[in-house]
Amino acid sequence: MFNGRLKAGFSKLSCTSQDGTGGVRSGVPRALLIRHHMERHESGRISATLATRVGEDADPTQIADAIISTWDAVNDALSPIIGRGGVAALYNRSLHLTGLDYPWLADVSRGAQTTMDLVGLKAALSRQTSANATAGGTAVLQTFYELLCRLVGPSLTDRLLRSTWAPF
């Protein structure tokens, strides 16, 4: 099912998408392609960081807490450098992209673009199963990391986010 969507995305991207009226269609196909082109080498580190913050057999609320505290650490590391608005913009973009794979995340980012709504994220994560919460929560962090890498490169991203990966 997933690959079918991906293939459709690829074919629509060979040239500028046109709808029937001659305008250019934007949105889903391009985002999908970008999403799946990003490197995934950091997911191990993110998962490990989360694992240190929660034990095994954690319930969704505990997982949600761990993910939110990771986001707090990200905010602490980055907002002095790029401003609260800068972090919020990247966060909301990450939510939007991850929401394509995890529809229950898509609702969190709707509306707010200049602020970082961690309350909504926590609520959405708590409502899922442990496995889903871990998968979805990790995916958003992963996407955020990859976005930052695409903008300023992995070396600088690692430097800037160094404090977030350190275990408590």
Partner: peptide
């Protein structure tokens, strides 16, 4: 935007990311 500035200044040879958050700090 600071992210853009970091992105473009990286293109120069003098940019050394090792120094960032050590002897160089960016604050917005």
């Amino acid at each position: 935007p600071p992210l853009k500035m970091l992105r473009y200044q990286q293109q120069f040879d003098f940019f050394n990311s090792e120094l960032i958050n050590r002897s160089i700090r960016f604050v917005n």
